[in-house]
Every structure is written in C-alpha cells, then in structure tokens.
Nucleic acid binder design. Structure first.
Lengths: 337, 337
DNA sequence: TTATGGATTGCACGCAAGTGCAACTCGATG
DNA sequence: CATCGAGTTGCACTTGCGTGCAATCCATAA
C-alpha cells in the first residue's frame, strides 16, 4: 500500500487548465497541439513529476516496447558480453529489455516465453534452450517476434542468427597442421548444442581430410572445471595430443591451467590450444589464447535491426536466417607454422 | 502491424459461455468461482492460448510486478554474478526483472529511473552510479521502492546494502604482516567509489597501526588492464612492494600477470597479492588468489526480502541499512605466516 | 411450502492512456 | 459582413483487466 501513487495525466491536465486529451497529445509525437498548450502541459508535468504510463500506452497501442531476453548462464563471460551489447542496442532502438533467467530446470524456456506473453512483449530473444513448437506458434500467432541466437532451429517464423561453426573448426585444424601438430583432439562439453557440435564436426572433417585422426572427449558443462577434467583425461592417454581445440574459451582456460600446472607442459611448445568465443580472459597474458571471436556486436545489430524493422511475416523464409563469420584471433597458444 | 493479436479474456469468456468476470476471477486467487465454471474457463483458455495481460492487470492493481535493475559493466564477472542471483531470486518472488544498462554517459542513472517510473516498476535496484536526489524523491513519492547496492548514500528512504569494506582492508593488512611483508601497497582504480575507498582507508589505517607505511597508486577503471598498468608503476619503484592489496580481483589478475610475466616475480614467494570480490577467475589455478567473497546471495536475499515484504516507510531509518560481511577466501597468493 | 442463507454470477464502473469526430477559434479572403 | 479553411480542443469511446454491488441460484431448515 504505497502512501501516494504515480502522477496521472488527469492531474497534469487539471494543473495546466486543459483537457486530458491535450496532455496525451503533448506526449504523442505528431499530434496536433498549439505551442502554448504544449508549454503549459510540459510545465505542469515537470512540476508534478509526470511520466507517461507505458503500461497503459502499451495497452492502447498494442505495443509495449518490451523485448524479453531469455538467458541462462548469465554469469558466463560470453553470455554477459552478448547481453551487454543487446541491452545497449535495444535501448538505442527505444526498447526496454525484460530479463528472464532460465538457470533452473528444463522447460523453463517455455515458462519464460509465457512471461513474455503475459507482459505483451513485442519480441523475445532466446539465448538459451529451445522453446516447444506449440509455444513458438502461440508467440507468432500473437504477433510477437522471435529471435534465436546460436540455437539452430528449423521452425519457420523466428529470426535465426548463427555462426559458421563448422568452417571455423576446419580453419583451426589447418592451423594445427601448419604448426606441426601430430595428434589432434577436440575437447567438448556434454551439452551437445548445435554450435558445439558444429565446431566438433567441422574440426574432425578437416583433420580427416588432412590425414589426421581426432580424439574426441566430452564432459560436463562448457566451463573451466570441465576443461580441467578433460585435460586430465586427454593428457594421460598413451598417445598424448599435441593440438587441442576446445569448444569454448572457458574449457580452454581450464585445459591450459591443468596442462601447465598439473602436467608441466609448455604452451605452445609442447601443446597447442585453441578456443572459441574470445572472452576477455583469452587475451590475458596467462592464457594468450588463439580463439574465434563471437561477433557479439554484429549479432546484436542484426537482432535489433530485424526487430525494429518489424520484419514482416510475408518475407521469404530465407530472410529469417543470418549466418555470421567468427573471426580468428591469432594469439600465442598455437605455434607459428 | 501484427497479423493477429493476443487472446483477450473476452474471447475466452465467449468460448466458455460465461461472462468476462468469470474469466477474470478464475485467474484471481481467492475469488469466488464454482468448480464447474473454473474448469470450463481453464479449458477455453488452454485451447486459445490465453494468458492474463499483466500490463492491464498492473494498471488495475497499481502494481506491475516489474522490478528495474539499473546496472553498468554487466560483462564484468562480479556484476554478472550479482545480476544472476538477483534475477533468480526476483523470479522466485514472482517478480519480473527489467534491465537498464547505464554504460553510457553519466546522468543515465536518472534516465534509467525515469524508465522505471514510466513502466510503473514496483521497485528499482541500483547497482551502479547514484541517482539525483530529486529523482529519488519522485520515486519514493510515487510509491516505488529503491535499493542501493554498495552505493553508500545518505538519502533516507532507499534500502542500502553495503559491505564491511573498511574492516576487510584491515584484515588483509594483518595477513600481509604475518606473511612477513615489509613494504605494503594498495592498488586502486580512479573510480573512487565509497566501496573502493573504504577498502583503501581500512588497509592504510591498519597498516599504519602495525607500523608499516602503504604506497597507494590509483589508475583507470577497476579492470584487468588497469591492474597491469598499476603493476608497472609499482614494481619499478626503488622500494618495491612485497605485499599488494588490489581493490578488485580484476585489478589483481592484471597485477599478477604483469608481475609474473613482465617482472618474473614468483607469487607468493617474492610478492603477496590479495583481491576483492572472489570472481570465478580468482579460483583458477593461474591465479589462486586470496580474496574477499562478495556475499552475492545474501545481498540478493536481503534486497528481495525487503521488496517482497513491501518494507513500509514508517520503519525506523536504521532498518533501511544493511551491512554484510565479506568472507576472506584463503588461497595461495599470500604466504602462510 | 416458504424462508433463509451462502455461494455464484453478471453488470457496470474504473484504471491511464490514445484517437476519430465534431465543435470550436481565429485570421484571411471575397 | 459572411464564408472559408486551417489549426486546436474536448467529448466519448476504446484497450484488458479487477471488483463492488445487486441479482440469481440452490440446498437446507422451519
């Protein structure tokens, strides 16, 4: 029970000695108001601390200005960097970001989308998990736009933004071979998302073509600890790998730390490592990791541009899929060939 | 121009053969509806994909369920960890998080709060910057609750959550002395926020009491790069410090990397280092940093508890200030005394 | 059979905004 | 002076929902 309530347009109208319509028009760009009325309304609004109620405005216009971000693992460097860029660009586009954390059990993506519907979000951007097809349909039917980032789904309707994971895997294989690596390995998590698997398949395919086999090991999440475990498993093998592509930078950091501090290996002399994401820590001199940069800014730009343009449903389905290139950031964890 | 609109209660009512009131009551806990009516409404709602419009509900109830999070530097480990915990706990409390990024120019905190007012947020949680007193007043007058985290402001009204920064500084000074350090230093950023300055003052005061002087250097932001620069400045001094307290973990990481890789120093043998925040990287074996843990969970719990309880204005002002303890996490960057 | 009471239901109004339409003002023109 | 037209203004209705009030229903008691 708040002691006082928000200031309404009615109160402003009374203070300014005009009708409520005049207040509404003053805050509606393009509406017809005389300069004098406008000034008096603005004065009164300023004095009372009036701010248009976007809940009510959204009700009328059937457009809330809210964009829902559906995310898990927010505390992860890559995720938080993407989040940062998305929120900034959304704000610049005049939208507001609603945040739904899906760190809990599965199916929570569906519950997140229900939240988005309840608050009549103009759009939802999904960074984690995959919604059930029925919910996706409901969103689209309701006129809510959908963006899937690195989700690689085949449902028609949502905008899908993906990277060239497969090709990236290939480029790193080449780099390892140039560096003179003899035994390649791919360190992956058990998550099995399309992005991770794409890197794995591309790496294996290219290595095979170059005449090398690849040891693949999958364990746990995509974090630092999993990287350590993977290092322990891989570096105790009879035939120790000397070129390891880690599916994410966090895995790579864990892998490198274990390789150095537990196995006493020197990087890149005895072991070449590459990662993916280009998180901030990859550039730290303790890691100096050669990796692929997620085009975070481009991803956000594409998503927001599409939302702002109100991308129509009558576009061809091809227009609903964007493929961006991950730039190879060359640092010191791979020997120069 | 969406092709179709969201389903309204009216449509559900028609399909279920009842009045719109019945639909409304079905979704209002505690309202009077017969089991039969309820069932028919729920069936119709399910079939049509109906979800209560929270914008309209918020309009009626004068309680939107929205909590606005005002943040900068989201991509930073500590910030994103706090954010993660806040969103999870807010969701558990039935609230929705609105996200405003203030990475831009100053004064944007004020603009962020205006957003919060426009969307009639029930509360705002401020993690960065300080709002102007006039806006704070407007929020409170409007019945919006305010939480300041590590902001240390003296305005009455908002809930203020802070740590024992000063005492922590003191504890680390003692640890350095026990480790046999002779020349102490404090590596700070130029940000000059109360938290950072509190750690600095506490450290200096305790060291002085123990008979040691402290070299203080301030530079740049609270990030990794600033830590490197600070190391360069401090470690080239005639009297090289052998015990350095860094105001944040990121500073410490940069400091350690420069100390090892540029100056060839061994930690903790030749140099003891401590940080603050206990970011994930502090536990990585490359750093193994002794540091203070931000009680992220406790902070979020306090904030959400206060919001959920609807903390009344007639509470004594003391109840508006919470002081939490930062736990010392002992790792390997300080010699055992 | 009628009265009583509790549970259920619908009507109508209100929340805070946007907007079509008609009425109004005012200056310029005929 | 009457007419025209452009520019303002206010009325009234709309959005989707919650809720007080009065009417209704039905089962039980008198």
């Amino acid at each position: 029970m708040p002691s006082k309530l928000f200031v309404s347009a009615q109160e402003v109208a009374e203070r300014a000695g005009v009708s409520r319509s005049a207040v509404s028009r003053t805050f509606t760009p393009g509406a017809s108001v005389s300069a004098d009325t406008r000034r008096r309304v603005l004065e009164a609004a300023e004095a009372l601390g009036y701010h248009v109620n976007h809940l009510a405005r959204g009700l009328m216009r059937n457009e809330s200005g809210i964009v829902c971000l559906i995310v898990s693992d927010v505390a992860t460097p890559y995720r938080s960097a993407l989040l940062r860029e998305l929120t900034i660009q959304l704000q610049n586009a005049g939208k507001v970001a609603m945040f739904v954390n899906t760190d809990r059990s599965d199916g929570s993506v569906d519950r997140a989308l229900q939240q988005a519907i309840r608050y009549r979000a103009d759009a939802s951007i999904i960074l984690s998990g995959l919604p059930d097809k029925s919910i996706t349909q409901l969103c689209l039917r309701s006129g809510q736009r959908l963006v899937l980032i690195n989700r690689d789904d085949d449902q028609p309707g949502p905008l899908k933004i993906n990277l060239d994971d497969y090709e990236s895997g290939g480029r790193i294989a080449t780099a390892f071979v140039r560096a003179g690596c003899k035994t390649l390995a791919f360190a992956n998590s058990e998550a099995g998302t399309p992005s991770l698997m794409g890197r794995e398949r591309g790496f294996i395919a290219a290595a095979t073509k170059l005449g090398l086999e690849v040891v693949v090991e999958r364990y746990g999440s995509t974090g630092y600890e999993a990287g350590r475990v993977l290092a322990q498993r891989m570096l105790t093998r009879a035939e120790r790998p000397d070129g390891v592509f880690c599916a994410t930078d966090l895995l790579a950091c864990g892998f490198m730390d274990a390789a150095r501090h537990q196995f006493g290996l020197s990087i890149p002399d005895q072991l070449c490592v590459a990662g993916f994401d280009d998180i901030e820590q990859a550039s730290w001199s303790s890691f100096n990791l050669t990796t692929f940069a997620q085009p975070v800014m481009a991803i956000a730009t594409q998503a927001v541009k599409w939302l702002a343009s109100g991308g129509h449903e009558d576009e061809p389905e091809e227009a609903h899929s964007v493929r961006l290139k991950a730039e190879l950031i060359w640092r010191g964890s791979i020997r120069k060939g």
